[in-house]
């Protein structure tokens, strides 16, 4: 066993090395100091240097600093206390296989996390969608084991990196603009070109609707009771809230003001006990 607490009266066997209680205390102190230094260095970097770097780069560098110091401290502890890690390798064998099976998902998430950091399908702050998991929100961070996404209801969801890595990811913030669309039906008697003109003029009043590429409106379908027009507009990526919630209302109001009818299916109901001629 790697740790034999009762190896002798006042020594402990760690990976085959006999360590005194005092050595262990020194090792624990060095490790604690190392963790504190790692934390301080990480916070110092975030406060004074991260602001000048791209968000994702800053986060990755911060993690590198933190875990780098931890690893250096761990190596310092083992070498200063004369712990021979080759014992661990020898002790591996079947024990390692057992641990491997037990931590399969942990290792998988770790490896996926490392790959995600290199692959960078999205960066912190991007709006992403993972369709297979029905997740849509703003990416907060990709950590070593999991990805944190802030949903629109304000809650934060933690998704294991393995799931993220093997899923399709839709990055909505991939470019500077995005498109939104809606469909509106007008009556068959109406002039389609006139309706398109009316909608275009109204969209031109919305400051966040891009002038180039200009809004596109076309006849999408000759439906059962209406001629359906498809309205597509482009807007700056972060300004969906300025247009998305009001687009349909703006189009409807414009058509109403122009006297263009928006038809809807109507049904006449005859009650069984009502004479038809009544």
């Amino acid at each position: 066993m790697a740790f034999e607490i009762f190896g002798t009266q006042d020594t402990i066997n760690v990976f085959g090395t006999q360590l005194s209680t005092w050595s262990l205390i020194v090792a624990a102190i060095i490790m604690t100091v190392g963790v504190i230094i790692a934390k301080v260095a990480s916070v110092f970097f975030k406060r004074y240097f991260a602001a000048n770097l791209e968000v994702n780069t800053a986060k990755n560098l911060q993690k590198l600093i933190y875990y780098g110091i931890i690893i250096v401290t761990l190596l310092t502890v083992t070498s200063s206390q004369g712990i021979d890690l080759s014992g661990l390798i020898v002790a591996g064998g079947i024990f390692g296989i057992v641990i491997g099976f037990a931590t399969q998902s942990v290792v998988s998430n770790l490896i996926s996390g490392i790959f995600l950091m290199f692959d960078r399908p999205a960066k912190a702050g991007d709006l992403i969608e993972i369709p297979s998991n029905n997740i849509y929100g703003r990416l907060i961070d990709i950590t070593v084991f999991s990805t944190r996404i802030k949903l629109f209801d304000g809650s934060i969801i933690r998704v294991p990196n393995e799931k993220v890595f093997t899923s399709e990811i839709r990055n909505v913030s991939g470019s500077e603009v995005r498109r939104i669309d809606c469909t509106v039906g007008i009556a068959y008697k109406e002039d389609v070109d006139h309706a398109i003109q009316v909608i275009k003029e109204e969209l031109a009043k919305l400051p966040y609707v891009l002038r180039e590429p200009e809004p596109a409106i076309w006849t999408e379908q000759l439906a059962d009771s209406s001629v359906n027009l498809k309205v597509l507009t482009w807007l700056p990526i972060d300004d969906w809230d300025e247009v998305g919630p009001i687009l349909v209302k703006v189009v409807k109001n414009a058509l109403d003001r122009a006297g263009i009818e928006i038809p809807f299916p109507q049904r006449t109901i005859w009650y069984g006990n009502t004479p038809k001629n009544s």
């Binding site: 500077e176 603009v177 498109r179 400051p207 891009l210 002038r211 180039e212 482009w234 807007l235 700056p236």
Partner: peptide
Amino acid sequence: SRYGLYGPPEEGILCKY
């Protein structure tokens, strides 16, 4: 106070227009 995109949607530059 309007915006426009210079270039294609996937790699264009957002501009005042």
